[in-house]
Design a protein around this nucleic acid. Sequence first.
DNA 1: CAGCATAGTTGAAAGCTTTCAATCCGGGCT
DNA 2: AGCCCGGATTGAAAGCTTTCAACTATGCTG
Lengths: 359, 359
Amino acid sequence: MANMKEIAKLAGVSLGTVSHVLNGSATVREPLRKRVMDAVASAGYQPSQLARGLRRDKTNMIGMIIPDVTNPFFPAVVRGAEDVAFEHGYRLVLCNTDNDHAKEIVHMNELRTYLPSGLIVIPSSFSDLTAQAESFRRSGAAVVCVDRLPLNWNGDTVTADNEKGAYDATNYILRQGHKQLAMITGPRHLTNSTNRLKGFKRALAEKKIHLGPEYIQEANFDQHGGYAKTLLLLRMIPRPTVIFAGNDMIAFGALLAFREMGLHCPDDISLFGFDNLDLAEMTSPPLSSVSQPGYQMGTTAAQILMDRVRGDDGPPKHVVLDTAIKIRDSVGKPVTGDNVHTSRTPARAARVSRTGRKR
Amino acid sequence: MANMKEIAKLAGVSLGTVSHVLNGSATVREPLRKRVMDAVASAGYQPSQLARGLRRDKTNMIGMIIPDVTNPFFPAVVRGAEDVAFEHGYRLVLCNTDNDHAKEIVHMNELRTYLPSGLIVIPSSFSDLTAQAESFRRSGAAVVCVDRLPLNWNGDTVTADNEKGAYDATNYILRQGHKQLAMITGPRHLTNSTNRLKGFKRALAEKKIHLGPEYIQEANFDQHGGYAKTLLLLRMIPRPTVIFAGNDMIAFGALLAFREMGLHCPDDISLFGFDNLDLAEMTSPPLSSVSQPGYQMGTTAAQILMDRVRGDDGPPKHVVLDTAIKIRDSVGKPVTGDNVHTSRTPARAARVSRTGRKR
DNA sequence: CAGCATAGTTGAAAGCTTTCAATCCGGGCT
DNA sequence: AGCCCGGATTGAAAGCTTTCAACTATGCTG
C-alpha cells in the first residue's frame, strides 16, 4: 500500500535515506534513523518484494520442484527445505511435475522469470536438465538436485544412499532364509530406483543367487503400481517368498494385493519397503522398511542453497545421507511350496476378500 | 535474460508493439506479429514476471497458507489447488504455519508484498484474520478460507460438513451397541474440531446418552496427541468401549497406544477416525473413518479464486462439501467389563509390547 | 480527390525499489 | 581563519514491463 516515497515524506527525509535505513546499506545517524523507523511502523509499511526483486535482480523466493506432494515422502523434504529457507527469510514456490519432464521444463522456465535465489529440484526423470539449470545459474540462482539425479548433472546434489539401503535390506531378507526373492522397482529412469535395484542385485550376486528377470518388476512409485505388480508376481511359479518394494507406497499396494489374494503377511509371504514413512509403523503388519531421512534431505538442500546465495562458489557438493533398515514384522521365514497359507488359521486380513484366483 | 527492448530491436518494432503482441492488448497486423513472435522464439524470451507484476499491480502467484504439509490431509488440498491454479496459469507459494497464529500473520504480511492474485488459507486458529484479509482485498487479491474458519469471517469459504460427518459416525457407533464412548477432539480453537464435537454430542443427546466431560479429550491433530490422550482414556473407569478420533492422525496414535497396552482393535476396543486418509485402509485393523474430499476442497477453493480474479464480485460463497462415513474393521461390538482382552487369543498387535500398566 | 475516421503503431510515463555519483556539512589541521 | 576530508544525505537513474495518449498511415465517403 504505502510506498517508500510516502515514508520518506512522513519522516522528512529522502527516498535514498529510507532505503539505507531499511537495508543498512549506509550508516544513518540515529535521529534520522529513528524518524524513519517510526514512520515505517506507523504506516505499517512493507517494501514491495516485486520492485525490490526487479532492482536487485533477485528475490527471496526459492523454487521447489517435486513430483507430487501427495506422495508422503515428499512433504517431509518440502518441510525441511521450507524450515531452513524460512529461517533465512526465503519463501518457497512449490511446483508438482507428476514426473512429467515437459511440465518440469515449463515450471523451470517460468520460475526463472521470478528471479528466485535458488531452485531445489527433485528431477522427474534422468532427462538432462543442464541447459535449464545453466540458465538459472546465469541469472544468479543456485540449483540443487535432491533424491534423484538427472543425466550429466554437474551441480550440487543431496541424495540418500539408496544402494546401501537396498543392499542392507536384501541381506537382511537373505539372512531370514529367503531364496526366492522378487523386487518391484520404481520407474527405471529414476536414479534412486536404479540404485536400489543395484543394491538388491549386488546382495544377491554376493550370495550367488540367480533371479529370473521376470521377478524384477517395474512400477510407478504409488500404491496402484505396487498392487498391480504384486498380483502379477503372486501368479508366478515358483511364487516369490518375499517382495522387496521400491518404496513404501508400492509396499502398501502389495499389502492390499496380499489381502485380496487371502495371503497373510508375513506368514505366507514377506515384504520389505523403502522410505520408512511414518505410516509404515501403522500397517498390518507393521512394515519393515529402509529409512531415509526425508526431512534432512530438505534441510540439507536448503542449507547448501543458502551457502551458495551467500557467495559460496566452491566445487559442486555431493551430500549422501545415510540410510538404515528398520525392522518390523513384515518379514518372516520363507514358506516353501505353494498354498501354504491354508495350513494355518485363516489370516485375519483374508476376511476382506478371499477370491483367490490362485493357480 | 533477454528483455523486451532486445526483442523489439530484433523484430524492428517498438517496445509497445511487442507488448501488444504478447498480451493481445491491441490488434497487430500479421506480418509484424509474426516478426515479433519469431524474435521471441529465437531469443527464447520470457517476460519478467517481476516487472509485469510491478506494472500490473498483480502477479500470477497464489499464496497458500496451511498448517503443515507433513500432515497427509493437507497435501491433498494443496494438490487440488495447484492443479486448478496451474491450469489457469497461476503458481502456488506455499507457507506452513504449524498452527501458529503469529507465523500466519508474518506469512500473510509478506505474501502481500508480492501482489499475489489470491490467497488460500487454512487458518491456524479462530483468531480474527479480517484485518489481514482486508488489506489483501484492498490490494486486489481475493482470499478464501478452507477447512476451518477464523472468527468473524465474511469472505468465501470451502469446508466439509464436519458436523454431519461426526454425527453420522457417532450414530453408526451407537448402532453397534456402544454406550460408553469417548472422543479425542482436535484443538478446540479450530472450527472443524468444534463442529465435529458438535455432531458427536448431538448424536449422543438424541439417544439421551450422557457422557462425563473427562471422556472428551483435546489433542493436537497429530499422532502423538492421539497416543497420549488414548493412554489417558484407557485408564478411566469405566473404560470407553470406543474412541472417536478427531482425525485419522489422532486415530493412528490411538492404535499405537492400543498396541502398547496390549489391546486388540476392534475386539477389545473400537476406533473411528476422520479424514479417511489413503492410509486408513492400510492400518491394522483397517480404520473406519469419515471421508472428506481434501483434493476437492483444494480445487473448489482455487476455482472460486479464479472466478474472483476474473471479476466475480458477488456475495461471499460458502461451499460445504459432503462427507461420508467409510466403514472398515475398526469398530466392533462393545465389550462390557474390564480386561476382557485376556479372554481371547492374544491380539497380534500385543506382540509389540505388553507392558500393560492396567489398573 | 480531399478530408476524415479508423486501425495500427509508437514513445513515454509510471510502477517501487536500489544504488551510484554528487552534494552537503561539520570538524580537524595548518 | 581557510582548507580539506570524510561521513551523512540526497537526487536521479535504472531495472522491465504495461498502458495511454499521440501519431501515422490506410481506407472510405462525398
